[in-house]
Design a binder for these strands. Structure first.
Lengths: 111, 111
DNA sequence: TATAAATGGAACCTTTTGGTTGCACAAATT
DNA sequence: AATTTGTGCAACCAAAAGGTTCCATTTATA
């Protein structure tokens, strides 16, 4: 059973769950209430999110609150950002700017 | 058949394929050569990547080159970045700085 | 104390996923 | 012309994913 962040966020329901609890923790029933599928189905999604560290459960009486650990998304962010240089226009112009600077410095050196 | 970028990058093999062709396009056999699984299995992964726009195929004689379209990762980046305010320490200190400024301005106003 | 509410999880089912082998076909080589 | 190379795809398979219903258990409440 592979449980990594990439696989966890692949499912749209799980992304929606994360969005719901991003601002405030909710108990399992509150989360399940927002979906058409059964509570058990939602519970399974929450479980997967906890297994990869994106969510932690906090017991409180008979309720269990789901708390988002969004810093785990760092893994995804890091992975994506390593490729930004291949497509981001802003980075392109930064590179152009830097290479222009280099050219200019060389010219200055030649003076 | 759901074919979105999130689902496409959920598989580690597909992420590795993207990494292989990020710098230079490779034909299907070249890509397949780097994996233990069959060429057909790799071809299927490439097909999924093309179906969500992360890769385009360019015919060249009898070969077909796989070219990465990494700007598609923008969707992932945008999704992740909307949550950064919940966990990024740098952003935290920026917020602290801004609220300090506010406090200071209020104090100045009271003088 | 009896009942309702909130949850975890077993058992089961269907669809999707990731893999295989084998074959067909076009392009390049001998 | 015959053969090798690169590829696409059908057919098939096992395992995983995503869903269901039903039941057990614990905690709150009438």
């Amino acid at each position: 059973m592979r449980r990594d962040v990439f696989q966890a966020i692949a499912d749209p329901t799980r992304r929606e769950i994360l969005n719901m609890i991003a601002h405030e923790s909710l108990n399992v029933n509150a989360v399940a209430g927002h979906f058409d599928v059964s509570r058990t189905a939602v519970y399974k999604h929450v479980k997967i999110l906890t297994e990869c560290g994106l969510v932690v459960m906090k017991q409180q009486g008979r309720e269990r609150f789901c708390e988002a650990k969004l810093e785990k998304l760092n893994e995804v962010s890091d992975w994506v950002e390593q490729y930004r240089k291949f497509w981001d226009a802003r980075l392109d112009s930064l590179e152009n700017y830097l290479s222009e600077l280099q050219t200019k410095n060389k010219e200055d050196g030649n003076k």
